[in-house]
Simulated assay, not measured.
Amino acid sequence: MKTNLVKTGKVIDGKEVLGIELTNTKGSYVKIYNYGAIVSKFIVTNVHGDKQDIVLGFDDIEQYVSAEYLANYPYLGAVIGRYANRVKGGQFCIDGKSYHLFTTPDGNSLHGGAAGFDKKVWEVLSTIDPSVTLQYISPAGEEGYPGNLTVQLTYKLSDDDELIMDIKASTDAPTAVNFTHHGYFNLAPDGGSVANHVHRIPASNYLEQNDDYTVTGKILPVEGTIYDFLGPKPIGQDWDPAEGYDQSFVLDQHSGEMTLASETTEAQSGLKLSVYTTEPIAHFYTAKYTDVKNGKAGKHYAPFSAFCVETQHAPNAINIPEFPGTLLRPNETYSQSTIFKIEHLG
Rank of each mutant, 00 (worst) to 15 (best):
F58M: 04
Y69P: 01
I94T: 15
A114F: 13
I32T: 03
H313S: 11
T277S: 14
Q312P: 07
G116D: 13
I226N: 02
K119E: 05
E21F: 09
Y184W: 07
L157Y: 04
G217R: 03
S40L: 01
I320Y: 09
I61E: 06
G112S: 07
H181V: 12
L70C: 06
Y289T: 13
G141M: 03
H48R: 11
M1Y: 14
P139Y: 10
G298H: 02
F284E: 05
P105Y: 13
P234H: 03
K15Y: 12
A282T: 11
H300M: 04
Q63E: 09
T290F: 02
D166I: 14
L207R: 01
Y33P: 04
N294D: 12
F323W: 12
D118R: 04
G112H: 01
K2H: 12
Y213L: 12
E266I: 04
T45Y: 00
Y136E: 09
K7D: 15
V151F: 03
H283E: 07
K119T: 12
T8L: 12
K10L: 15
V44S: 02
D95Q: 15
E208T: 11
F179V: 10
S337K: 13
P146V: 09
A261H: 04
N196S: 15
D252L: 10
S28R: 12
T286D: 06
K31A: 13
S158D: 05
L207D: 00
G192C: 09
A242M: 02
I226L: 07
D160P: 02
S109L: 09
I54S: 05
K120L: 13
N196T: 14
P174G: 11
L260F: 04
P202C: 11
A195T: 05
G14L: 09
T216M: 00
H254Q: 11
K168Y: 06
S255Q: 04
I201K: 03
Y227C: 02
G112D: 00
Q152V: 10
M258H: 07
G27Q: 09
L328W: 08
G49Q: 02
G217T: 07
K233R: 10
G36P: 00
P74N: 10
T264K: 08
Y145R: 04
G113E: 09
P241I: 07
S337E: 06
V87K: 03
A203L: 08
Y334P: 05
N46I: 06
Y206V: 00
G270W: 09
R200V: 10
E266D: 07
G77R: 05
H199P: 03
S335I: 13
V30W: 00
G81D: 09
E68R: 02
Q63W: 01
A267H: 12
D118H: 07
I201C: 04
Q91C: 14
I20K: 02
E279N: 11
S138M: 11
H344V: 11
S335A: 15
V292R: 09
F185K: 08
T333P: 01
T259C: 15
A115F: 10
T214V: 09
